[in-house]
């Protein structure tokens, strides 16, 4: 047998049972001679053990009846709202991965358990945006020139202390706002912003919320998207047709300021 040089690649192969048996002894010798590589191997083995341990319990859980029923053809009609909600959880993981691990912990759980409140909020916010942002002359009821009145009026109607966020740093100026229905019998404030190119975004804020959730929602491909947050007692969606990163930046700034205003 000819001696070959091993590399980090072989650590993975050895770990995954892909290293040819006849190379095993030479590999072990190489590992012993390379403490750094050995430490790496030891660590990967430990991480794998932790992963296996964390997931081991799943195999012992009783299979949920609904899964058995699908296979046995006894599946009850599934409510459409419930169907295929799992990807929201996946979405949360992707989104939170960007913000780092610290943000992840609660995110998936809160979104996965969210009912339809988040979809509903996002859909209403998008519908309002599509209807009013396209209006040139009648987009708002109260213009930005009357900002103080706008804020007081909307705060009183919606039942939240609303401070129109300053989005100048993101390139957006307040156009004005209007009052809209929300949910079953609630009210929502819509604040419309415009950038130098005439691109418009809207903030949709309501006190009608009993869920905690957050996410991104697009009613249709190519249409405006909503970045939304729901919390108990208030909910907010930022809607626009901006590139996702830009919409996300604007939304973060707007949400931070709204939250500061509401809790001030």
């Amino acid at each position: 047998m000819t001696r070959r040089d091993f590399s980090e690649r072989d650590i993975h192969m050895a770990l995954d049972g892909e290293l040819p048996g006849e190379e095993r002894m030479a590999y072990d010798a190489w590992l012993e001679a390379n403490p750094e590589m050995k430490a790496k191997s030891t660590r990967y083995i430990a991480d794998r053990a932790a992963m296996r341990a964390a997931l081991a319990g799943v195999m012992d859980e009783p299979v949920p009846a609904r899964l058995r029923q699908v296979v046995l053809g006894e599946a009850p009609a599934k409510a459409s709202a419930w169907r295929s909600r799992w990807w929201l959880s996946a979405a949360a993981a992707v989104m939170l991965a960007v913000g780092g691990l610290g943000g992840y912990v609660a995110g998936v759980d809160s979104i996965a358990r969210g009912g339809d409140g988040d979809d509903q909020l996002a859909e209403q916010a998008i519908a309002a945006h599509v209807t009013y942002a396209a209006e040139k002359r009648h987009a708002v009821e109260v213009p930005a020139s009357d900002k103080d009145h706008l804020q007081t009026w909307l705060s009183n109607r919606v039942g939240l202390k609303l401070v129109a966020p300053d989005l100048a740093a993101e390139g957006f100026e307040l156009v004005g706002g209007r009052l809209l229905p929300a949910g079953e019998q609630g009210k929502a404030a819509m604040l419309l912003y415009e950038d130098a190119k005439g691109e418009r975004i809207s903030l949709y804020v309501t006190a009608e919320s009993s869920e905690t959730s957050k996410g991104t929602y697009a009613a249709e491909a190519g249409g405006p998207a909503a970045v939304y947050w729901l919390d108990k007692g208030y909910a907010c969606a930022v809607v626009g047709s901006l590139p996702p990163e830009r919409l996300s930046d604007v939304a973060k700034s707007a949400y931070g300021q709204l939250l500061a205003g509401i809790s001030s």
Binding site: W86, W87, A90, A91, A92, V94, M95, L96, V98, G99, G100, G102, G103, V105, A106, G107, D109, S110, T212, K214, G215, T216, Y217, A218, A221, A225, V227, W229, P243, P244, E245, L247, S248, A251, K252, Y255, G256
Partner: peptide
Amino acid sequence: FIDQMRKVNRRGEAAMLPLEAGEAQAA
């Protein structure tokens, strides 16, 4: 799984704020 992850990515993936410490929910 992958189909949905791709759709999610197209929707924009950087939309989340890091959660506040107090928001963490018990398992």
